[in-house]
């Protein structure tokens, strides 16, 4: 932070002599203090999970959902400033709705990530605004089937133009992460927030690029990673929030939904068990000493 006091970090959209945009870097700091958020791209769907820190006993348990749905088939989880996260989501919903108005079909996840990347980037360009204090993970399932066009009420002619090439794979699970700078990448496993370093190293162990992890395994891994990334000693209590989206013939039928209570609780139970397992090992080790 040698730059503090030089004046180049006081306004958005200003470069320092060595080519940095400090206000964007400071926005990233806001993200780094938020609860851990992760996304896993499995072979048959995407899981999003969030460590929701309990800031007060008076909060209503189980309420205050933070993973939002965009269109029907996509979810957004973010870490950082909560109201900025909502701004991000509301823009994402507008983009998805606008896309539908124009193309009469749902927006592909990649297109949404692209548009949101552009939108977030615009908030780094002007001194009249500040960058987004969030990093957002977007997960979605683009339909593998040929969907009816919005407003279609019949099947239309069986022959003629508009057909698709056979043997081409359409759709599938997609995962993107958008940073305060507007930068975004596609991911197999993405993590942001306070516990991102631990979460990332856990995600790397899953060999997600092999495309073998199933959605249900993904849910359990996601829960475990959030529990591992949570620091019991330093952090407040947390609630685990998890959503998923599967293929049309999977459990969510192509929709982005909450992970069912039973499965989430099962995943949490396993997550706690795996943590206890670690502790027990340690304890045993100590006793042997």
């Amino acid at each position: 932070m040698t730059s503090i006091g030089t004046g180049y970090d006081l306004s958005n959209s200003v470069f320092s002599p060595d080519g940095r945009n400090f206000q964007v870097e400071y926005a990233v700091k806001a993200v780094e203090n938020g609860g851990t958020a992760i996304g896993i791209r499995c072979k048959d769907g995407v899981v999003l999970a969030l460590e929701k820190l309990i800031t007060s006993k008076l909060l209503k348990p189980g309420a205050n959902k933070r993973i939002a749905t965009v269109d029907r088939n996509m979810g957004v989880v973010s870490s950082g400033l909560l109201p900025d996260g909502r701004h991000f989501v509301s823009r994402a919903r507008d983009e998805a709705a606008q896309w539908r108005q124009l193309y009469k079909a749902p927006i592909p996840t990649s297109a949404l990530a692209n548009r949101m990347g552009s939108y977030v980037q615009m908030y780094t360009l002007y001194s009249s605004v500040r960058p987004f204090g969030v990093t957002a993970i977007v997960g979605g399932w683009d339909s593998e089937a040929e969907l009816p066009v919005d407003g279609q009420v019949g099947s239309g002619p069986k022959v003629g133009s508009g057909g698709k090439k056979g043997g081409v794979k359409h759709g599938g699970p997609f995962l993107y992460m958008i940073e305060p700078s507007g930068l975004y990448w596609g991911y197999y496993g993405a993590a942001t927030g306070k516990g991102r370093q631990i979460a990332k190293s856990e995600l790397e162990k899953l060999n997600l690029s092999d495309g073998t992890l199933s959605l249900e395994e993904g849910v359990k891994e996601a829960a475990r990673i959030i529990y591992v990334a949570h620091d019991d000693n330093k952090d407040k209590d947390f609630e685990l929030e998890m959503t998923w989206v599967s293929s049309l013939d999977g459990p969510t039928k192509g929709r982005h939904e909450d992970v069912p209570k039973e499965l989430r609780e099962e995943a949490e139970r396993l997550a706690k068990k795996s943590l206890e397992g670690d502790d027990e090992d340690e304890d045993e080790g100590k006793m042997e000493e």
Binding site: Q23, Y26, A30, L81, S128, V129, R130, P131
Partner: peptide
């Protein structure tokens, strides 16, 4: 401090004073 003049400036810690 220099970071609390307006609501469009982040402090180095990522706060908005």
């Amino acid at each position: 401090n220099n970071y609390d003049n307006d609501s469009v400036t982040f402090s180095p810690q990522g706060r908005i004073f």
